[in-house]
Each structure stands twice: as C-alpha cells, then as structure tokens.
Design a protein around this nucleic acid. Structure first.
Length: 538
RNA sequence: GGCCGGGUGCCAGAGUGGUCUAAUGGGACGGAUUGCAAAUCCGUUAUCCGUCGGUUCGAAUCCGACCCCGGCCUCCA
C-alpha cells in the first residue's frame, strides 16, 4: 500500500499523489525570528521533517500520476521560509495598535545584555531589526540542526532552501501589482496612508480549507481588529497585502508608498519562486496545483493558509478543485506542556536551547516531540522526556553491540520492514512504527551487522540515533552527565567514597551516596572504577 | 454563535466492526545480577476502551444524546 495522508483541505485520508513521484516539492511555513523557537514550534517542524524523511526512505512507496505505486529513490525538495519581517503585536493587519515584534525583541536583547543574560561578546545592535533577525535566525538554525531537521542541515550548503522574507519583498510587490491588475486586490486611502487589500469575494473558494466560509465569518470575531480598519474594506475578511507606513521599523518603497507587506503574501512568493519558477507573471497551465505538500502549525490553517491559497490561486490561475495551490495540506496539532497549552504570549514555554543547556540529549527531545501522531495534541512532560531518553539508549545499545552474523534470519528483518512501512504509510502512524522497531529489537538476541544496518534505515526516518550526543565531562573518578559541572565538593565526596569502598566500609560508602543525593546528585558505579554523576530525578 | 480535533491501563500512546482477555515505551511489583545500588536481563501488571442508549450474530471501533478536554474564528507552530 502506498503512502496515504490526511489532507486538511478535503478532511479525509487520501493517497498522496505528487506531480512527479520521484521529485516531491514541499513547503513548510517556518519560524518568525524575533525570539527563540520553542518546543511547540519544533514539534511542527519535526513532524514535517519526519514526513519528508519518510517520503525519501527506500521503504516508502508513493502513488504516481499513472495510478501505480512507485519505489524510490526519491528526492524531496523541502523549503522553509524565515519570517524576518516584523509585524505588530496586537494587529498584524492594520498596524494601528501594539508595537512591532522586532522592536520588542530589540528591547529584550538590550535588557539581556544589561543583566548579563547574554554574553558581552555578542555584538548586536538592539536598534537594528536586521541584526536582531539574523541573531535569532542563527540560533534557530543551530537548534534545528541539533534536532536533526534535515532541511536546516542541507540549508548550510543551499541557503535557497531557507529563504528570508526580507529578501523576497520585491517579489511580493510584483505579486501585489499583479493581483491589483487582475482585479483581485484594491487600494484604499490617500497618499501617506494607503492600504492594499485582497478582495476575498473575488475568490469563491475562500474558506474551503478552514471551514470559515465568508458567510460564516463574523466581523471582528476575535475582537482584535480595530473597527477603523474594517470600515475601509469591502468585506470584513479582506486581508492586508501592503500597508503604507513611513514610521515602520522595517520598510520598503512600493507603488503604494514606503511601508511593509502583509504577512500572508511572503509565503505565496517564496514557495512559488523556490519550488515552481522564478517568473511571478507565469500562469499555470490547466490550473494544476503548484506544489505537492504544504505544512504549518494548526493555527496557520486560518487565516494564513486560507489567504495564501486565495492569493496564489488567483495570481497564478491554479484551480481550487484541482488542489489549487498545494495538492496536500499537512497540519500538525499543538503541543501541550504538562497538560496546558503553551504560547509565546503566555510565556509558559520551553525553548530547545533552554533544554539543551540543562543537558537534555537532542535525540531524546527529538523522539519526545515526534513520537505522538502529528494530528493529536501531544503532551510534553519531563516524565515523557525521560521515557524517550531511555528508549534512545536502548536503541543505541542495540546498534553499538551489533556485529558479525545476525542471530536470526532475513525473515525477521523483512517483517520489521513491512510493519514499519505499513505503519508510516497509514497517515504517518509513527507510534506503530516505533512499536515495530521495538519488537524487532526485542526479538533480536544478538544483533548482527545487517540488523544494525536496518536500524539505520529506520533511523533515517526517525532521525534520532544519527544526532550528536552531548559531551560528558570526565575526571579520573567521575563521569558527569551533560549539563552537570564537576563540582569540587562532589569530587571530594567521590574520593572519600572510593576510599571507603576500598576499605570495605560499605556503611560509610552508602552514607556518602545519600549525602550526594541530598545535594541533588544521583550516582552509579560503572566499569573501570569510575562513577557516573547525573542530576537526581533526571 | 460558527468550524475542527479528542476522551483507551499508574503515565505516555497505538488500535476505527470479529485475530482485542487491547501494540509499544516508561513506571510499579517479583526474580536473576550487584557488597548495597544503578544499569542490564527474565516475568507479572487494562475481561476492558468518558457516560447512557441504539444498530449488529458480533463494537474500543458504526449511529444518537449527554458530560468533559484541546484548537481555530485576523498575535501564535
């Protein structure tokens, strides 16, 4: 059975049929870079990464336009934008209230430098939005690579896979011009306060993705859109394409004055230019879908992706009935933290780098973020992270102990491959796929070279074992877990305990272990007379 | 008010009409091992799937009502 995926657009699970089964185009809405990405962001990006890895796996079969299932090899061109244009905190459309996010980030950076939270050698001007954006962009790419986001690793060699919105503004202006010329957009306001809106009533399929059809959208339902902005629109759902605003922190010249683009138009431009063609005046023959896959967090379904579809279908003559802009829309659900929603505005979020700084193994974090089905809300917990860590360690032991002839037949490996492929082909059932891996590991008493190779194939999709492990600090007596500094007080206790054990004074040895536990350290004896030290409870 | 997802053991989380007395991982418990621990290995751990009704020879799986939880309805992955 070839790959089947749930399509948000049709609300059904369907065969995934790309335009070219050997070369799949995939666009993912990427991060905004006015703060560090949190683990919820990464859950969404990693779900897309697992999908792309699965499509590229030699075990995956994909249905072609000829109706036949095709084996690989297959290439996925996976593009993820970097949103480095600042937007308003309160009103991304009108910009009449709130502050620009990039300006807020600048203040935060200035404060962090003052308080010493950011090292003094970080050279960044908090008043320069481009420097702020680059600063967070680098940190994002760094985190993404540590978590095995394949696109970020490829992006080092091919930066066009991670296009920046600020570098695509000329294309956005061109596309807005085209939409106006075609009658899909209109300009309101006089010089100095011009605004370009998309006319949603010209696109009858508006609402198909989200279910928010025009007659169901109530004016200002979220209560966040200023009434004065709404007044100049032809329909309350009309959305911003360009805003003239000479006071904006980031601004560009345009036929509608100096200002900034609306926040939906960038993805229409970047996805087209990187995955379809450079000529934004092109028209798609037969109204075919432009790209194969498009992903983003569930909150992107409306309004962002709805608006992208409207813009792109209208500008390039793609037909909604033929999939329109993208053949298949992939939307991972939110990540909860200890049972409640996390969001930037609530501030209850973990960033990946916070966790790495505490010594969390990227492999464990990746597995924890990826192991729940992408269309369910996952619940991130410290317990779950510990579970994932142990799972990773079992797999590592399996691979590291492998060698020579396998203790069992090829049939066992074939079963595992089949089970793994069937699970992932069924709308990316990763939990079932992991279960297949575990069953394979459990029944393999003595793993051979071929078993280790098969694990590598599985890990090509899971992307866990290939990640770099955090380094452990080591002294002649202690091996300190990542994130645990070799404290002299601890070292002294370890020396004392070593002496006690040599003298067979086990009562004293155990007492020292309890003392260390009270100090927050858990220890265990390992081969060679050394002691492994980790944080208690971790 | 409109539109989407969900409710499975101590926890996380699969399973969508019979093979389910419900996968897999963690935890817990028992055993092996260890000076004792830790790690590892072996074994045990849901007669039941939010509640109540219905359809069916047969339901965790389909239908209805109800109760809860999460998301979106122009900040957010």
């Amino acid at each position: 059975m070839p790959l089947r995926l749930y399509n948000t657009l049709t609300r059904t699970e369907e065969d995934f049929v790309p335009r070219d089964h050997a070369r799949v185009s995939f666009y993912s809405c990427g991060p905004t870079v006015y703060d560090d990405a949190h683990i919820g962001n990464f859950r969404s990006f990693l779900a897309a990464d697992v999908l792309r890895r699965w499509i590229e796996s030699p075990l995956c079969e994909v249905k072609g336009a000829d109706g036949q299932a095709h084996k690989g090899p297959r290439k996925v061109v996976h593009v993820m934008n970097i949103t480095d244009v600042g937007h308003m905190t309160d009103d991304a459309e009108g910009g009449e209230s709130g502050e620009d996010r990039m300006a807020v980030a600048g203040k935060r950076i200035a404060e962090a430098k003052k308080s010493g939270k950011l090292p003094a050698d970080v050279r960044i001007d908090p008043g320069d939005p481009y420097q702020i954006a680059r600063f967070y962009e680098e940190r994002f790419k760094d985190d993404a690579k540590r978590l095995g986001l394949k696109l970020a690793i490829e992006g080092e060699k091919d930066p066009t896979l991670q296009p920046r919105a600020t570098e695509s503004v000329p294309g956005m202006i061109e596309l807005v011009k085209r939409l106006i010329a075609q009658g899909y957009a209109y300009v309101v306001g006089g010089a100095g306060e011009r605004v370009v809106y998309f006319d949603v009533q010209k696109f009858p399929a508006y609402g198909r993705l989200s279910g928010n059809t025009l007659d169901q959208l109530r004016e200002g339902a979220g209560g966040r859109v200023a009434a004065s902005n709404q007044a100049s629109k032809r329909h309350p759902a009309d959305f911003l394409l360009w805003k003239e605003d000479s006071s904006h922190i980031m601004k560009w010249d345009s036929p509608w004055g100096a200002g900034y683009p609306g926040w939906h138009i960038e993805c229409s431009v970047m996805s087209f230019q990187r995955l379809v063609g450079n000529d934004l005046s092109a028209t798609i023959p037969n109204g075919e879908a432009l790209i194969d896959l498009h992903s983003g967090g569930e909150d992107n379904i409306f309004p962002h992706h709805e608006c992208e579809i409207a813009q792109s279908c209208c500008a390039f003559n793609a037909t909604p009935a033929k999939g329109g802009y993208a053949r298949l829309w992939f939307h991972p659900r939110f990540l909860l933290v200890e049972g409640t929603k996390m969001s930037k505005s609530k501030g209850n979020f973990f960033t990946a780098r916070d966790l790495f700084a505490k010594g969390v193994d990227p492999a464990a974090l990746r597995l924890e973020l990826v192991r729940t089905h992408y269309r369910s809300n996952a619940n991130f917990t410290m317990q779950g992270l510990a579970d994932s860590q142990r799972q990773v360690e079992r797999w590592r032991r399996f691979v590291e102990s492998a060698g020579g002839d396998a203790s069992h037949s090829q049939g066992s490996r074939d079963d595992a491959m089949l089970g793994f492929a069937q699970a992932l082909n069924a709308d990316l059932n990763i939990a079932a796929a992991i279960a297949e891996v575990n069953k394979f590991v459990a029944r393999t008493e003595k793993p051979g070279t071929q078993d280790a190779e098969l694990m590598k194939v599985f890990d090509g999709v899971l992307g866990v074992l290939e990640l770099q492990r955090p380094a452990a600090a080591s002294t002649d007596i202690g091996i300190f877990a990542p994130g645990v500094a070799p404290d002299p007080a601890v070292l002294a206790k370890l020396e004392e305990r070593r002496a006690a054990r040599a003298a067979k004074d086990f009562a004293r040895s155990d007492r020292i272990r309890d003392e260390l536990l009270a100090m927050g350290y858990a220890i265990k004896d390992v081969a060679g007379g050394k002691v492994e030290v980790r944080r208690a409870g971790a």
